[in-house]
Every structure is written in structure tokens, then in C-alpha cells.
Design a protein around this nucleic acid. Structure first.
Lengths: 218, 218
DNA sequence: ACAACAATCCAATGATTATTAGAATGTTTG
DNA sequence: CAAACATTCTAATAATCATTGGATTGTTGT
């Protein structure tokens, strides 16, 4: 009468194994911003390209990512938005229960208040009316894949050169890849020193989407 | 200028590692129904108690479960509902992308159509009006921890003895621990043979809750 | 205090996994 | 076709993990 159902759990554990390595989580975090080639991923994460390739293979075997060839390059992308959702959920559970993580994040979060759904709606409304300037400091390829509504692209490494695009009399809100990303914080450091009224939101596009908010594409 | 942020991913990977073993996922699946003692878990999963204890220790170190002593027994429970949500999310990703899993589930799902949110609301409404009888075939302790609205407890191992509680002229809907649980299917086999109009829903309380539906407690 | 029981700790085993170096594959460009 | 390049494959080593048996801890009931 007893039926062997452990095969189900073995299959799900394939996904679990895939997300059990810090390196693979870093890869997923990047890929959740936009599709990328192996060497972009390797460079961005200061990882040996062979190692990046091996981990991407593991992710592919767990069907979390798909790969396609583009000329000399292999382009990897998440196999679905549910994978990005899984990453957000996993991170949220870690943040909720691992004191060590919250402590490590403490430095970054101390400057940023928690964001409520109302805040999110309000931010969009203000951005639409032009009352605040929302800047996306990620590389422009990631902005083009998806970004917050009414946000403008202003990559971190072009920030200093394009300062005149930002008005000094309006509040500027910077965001980047999400809670583990420091680019928005760096933008704050740069702009605050020049007298701008600037703050960050911890959320990236995936946290934004996971909370039911709309995004803009292309 | 480069900041070491890999510690974040290492911390999140602790959660990933915890959910990378089929045995631990089986434990989480059971614990997502209700708190349980080590030996109940070990018996239910036909697992050596030492092994169960070792895996529970790993889950505890990842802060996914907490333990308290109750007399001779150690009672384990999930450290939050977000952990159950993580389990549901993980399973959904696996089901969406792993053909092997969908194939293995095929036999079970073939008899059950997909459930939409409207179906869920409708089911509650019908159960409230008494048009359908919703039975919870899990052990009664799990029913008491949480169950679907207007469901009545009728554990699988008492089913044959308590048949007279079920009217033959109404549709009966059985549910159990969720998509990987076969108890509801066994109830269908038993009742269909006796002429009852019976069907199952794949969802358990965690899938129900994750889709925003209410539950009853106590 | 002692016997019975639940659970954990400890140590040892074999089985996986991460990582790196070197060789090999596939694609573009001259 | 050959050279350059991006990526993957193969093999090997060190590290980590799952599992089990035996000893140990903590609790209950006598």
C-alpha cells in the first residue's frame, strides 16, 4: 500500500542543490537583472571563467537557466520569472531568520527605511509628476531589459560625467540590483557630497515585481 | 573601492544548503502541516531516528526550524510561515521546469484538473452552503493546527470506520498535505469504490495559504 | 537511585562537490 | 585555411556531506 514518493523530493532537491552554492546565487542574482554572457558574468563576479561555466552548467542542469549561442558568446538567462521570484523568496527567508545576515546588512540598511506598498505607489506617482527623479544606476543593458516605471538610466560609471542631467532642487532616488547591491549606495555617496538631496531604495526590479508592482520594459 | 559582499550570498546559501537534500525537504513538508516530534517524523518518513535528528539539526542551524522540549520529546516546528512559503515556491519552480518531475506526477495529476482562484472561492462557498463536503484526510493533529475553511476532519485511517458520516447524495472533496501527498488519492480510491461522488484537490494548506486564501485554525 | 525511553553527540565510512589545470570544441575574422 | 577567442570537457585533488553504530545526555516514572 505504501507508494514510493521520494522521487518527487529528489527532483525538487535538484533545484535546492542548484541554489546551495554562494557562487551560483551570485550568478542567479546577476541573471535576474538581465541575460548575460559567460565572460560578463565571470568578470562582474571576479570569477574564473571555467568556474563560472561549471556553475552555469549546474544551473542549466537544474533547469534554472537556459543558454543560447550568440556568435562566439554563450548567453545565459533565467528560464522564467519564477526563478527570480524563488531567489527573492530565498533571500527574504534568509534575511528574516539569519541574524548574521541581518547584522552584515546592518551597515547598508541603516541609512534606508523599510518600504511599504504605499511608499511604492507614492514613489511612482511622484516620479510620474516629476517631483522626484528616480535613477537606475545599473549598467544600461540591465535598464533596457526592465526598470522601474518613470526611472531614467544613469549608470554608476557615467554618473560623474553626467551630473548636469540631475537638477539640484529635486529629490533624487537611486536604485540598483537589489538589497545586496552597493551601487546605489555608492551613487548616494557621490551625489550627497555634491549637495544633492538623494536617497536609495533597497529594492531592485525583482523585489519590485515580486510585490506586485509594474515594471517598464525595453 | 570594491566591497566584499560575498558574505551575503554565503549566508543565503546556508538556507539553500538546508533545502538541498530530499530528506530534509520531506521533513519540511511534514513540518509545514504542523509541529511534530522527532520520532513522529522518523516513523512517518521511515527514516532512522538518528538520521532524522541529524537532518533536523541541519535545518535548525539554518534557522528554518526551531525546537522545544516537551517532556521526553523534542518538538520541531517551522520558524515561520515564510518557510512554508519557500517550500511551496521551490516546489512550484521544480514543477514548472523539471520535466522529470511533471512526468512522475503525471499519474497523480491526470485525475485532477488545475485549480483556479475562482474555483477556490467557489469551493469555499459551496462548502459553506453544504452543497459539497470537504474532508481533510490528514491526521487530526494536522487538521487542528490549520485546515481549509468549512472542512471536516476525517483521517484516512478512520475513513472506512466512519463512512456513515458521509452522505451519498453530495459531492465529496478530499484534500491532504499537498501535491506530493497520496492520502487524498487513496481516499478517492476507497470512496469511489463505494459509490461516492468524490474528487481531490492537489492543494494542501500551504498552497492554499500561499495563494492568499484564508484558513481556519484551532 | 534506577530502569526505560527520546534524542543527541562522536567517530568513521563512503559518496558527492568545488575548484583548478590542461586539452578540446565551436565560431569569427583575416 | 589559420589564428584568435569564448566556452566547455576531462581529469585530478581537496573539501564537504550523508549515513550508521556506539556511547552519552536528559527526562519520566517507579
Amino acid at each position: 500500500m505504501k507508494i514510493e514518493n521520494s522521487i518527487f523530493f529528489e527532483q525538487v532537491a535538484r533545484i535546492g542543490k542548484a541554489i546551495s552554492s554562494p557562487k551560483r546565487l551570485e550568478l542567479l542574482n546577476l541573471l535576474s537583472q538581465s541575460e548575460k554572457t559567460v565572460d560578463v558574468l565571470a568578470v562582474e563576479l571576479s570569477m574564473d571563467i571555467k568556474l563560472a561555466s561549471a556553475h552555469l552548467k549546474a544551473l542549466k542542469e537544474a533547469r534554472l537557466v537556459t543558454a543560447r549561442r550568440d556568435g562566439k558568446f554563450m548567453v545565459y538567462r533565467l528560464s522564467g520569472q519564477d526563478v527570480a521570484t524563488l531567489w527573492v523568496t530565498l533571500r527574504q527567508v534568509a534575511e528574516a531568520h539569519l541574524l548574521e545576515l541581518r547584522h552584515a546588512l546592518g551597515d547598508m540598511t541603516s541609512t534606508t527605511a523599510t518600504v511599504t506598498p504605499i511608499d511604492r505607489m507614492q514613489l511612482i506617482a511622484q516620479a510620474e509628476k516629476g517631483e522626484v527623479i528616480v535613477i537606475d544606476v545599473r549598467p544600461s543593458a540591465e535598464y533596457e531589459a526592465a526598470h522601474l516605471p518613470f526611472a531614467r538610466s544613469l549608470p554608476l560609471d557615467e554618473l560623474e560625467a553626467r551630473l548636469e542631467e540631475l537638477p539640484l532642487d529635486k529629490e533624487v532616488v537611486a536604485y540598483c540590483r537589489g538589497p545586496f547591491c552597493i551601487m546605489a549606495n555608492q551613487a548616494v555617496a557621490t551625489l550627497a557630497a555634491k549637495g544633492y538631496q538623494i536617497r536609495t531604495i533597497r529594492e531592485g526590479i525583482n523585489e519590485w515585481r515580486a510585490s506586485g508592482m509594474p515594471l517598464e520594459y525595453a
